[in-house]
Amino acid sequence: MNPILECRHLTKQFGRFTALSDVSFSLKRGRITGLLGPNGSGKTTMIKLINGLLTPSYGEILVDGQPVGTQTKKIISYLPDRTYLPMTGKISDVIRLFKNFYDDFDENRALDMLKILSLDPSFRLRPLSKGTLEKVQLILVMSRRAQLYILDEPIAGVDPAARDFILDTILNHYDQQASILISTHLIADVESILDDVIFLKQGNLLLQAEAEDIRRKDGKTIDQLFREVFRC
């Protein structure tokens, strides 16, 4: 079975600054992969390249064997590190938007998750807090039956209770055949759910390994290894 994602010699430069340098890796299907690295290591740049929001300076990205484009956007469900919802409408408007554009969007699943958070679809988006908006976004993203979920810093800047909700939502609402690429620097919170890890440092790929191998061979947790590798 071909990998769900392949990055080959990926380089991204912003003027003279190199954000990613010759990065190559692939993701297997049905696995949860942690894209780990400190701030400024190139995680978000990598994710934006995979989603077609940035154009690589060099290299190639294949999603399910296809270059980034309309077809790959049908199978990727992406949670960005910022609020991207149009603030002019209601929650029901963005649900309608997702339903109209994504064939794999499950409206009932979204409504069920909103109910858990006591969020009425008739609520307007503008008055909602940043944390609530992030949860609405996560609900929309996880209500798709996508093949690849790409989540950029989903637990950054939220309280521990919200973190639990977010991680539960991710784990309970993704198709087991699907893959998840989750970027974070809060390793301890996500460590238990990771099958594979990728370490990025200053735009370079430092390590790609199975989480279990690291624990078994090195006798360390991912968090311990991360702290060791990225010690200032």
Binding site: L53, K73, Y78
Partner: peptide, 11 residues
């Protein structure tokens, strides 16, 4: 920021 949504729609 809404461009993140616009350009990740399958359009």
């Amino acid at each position: 920021s809404e461009g993140y949504l616009t350009f990740t729609l399958p359009v």
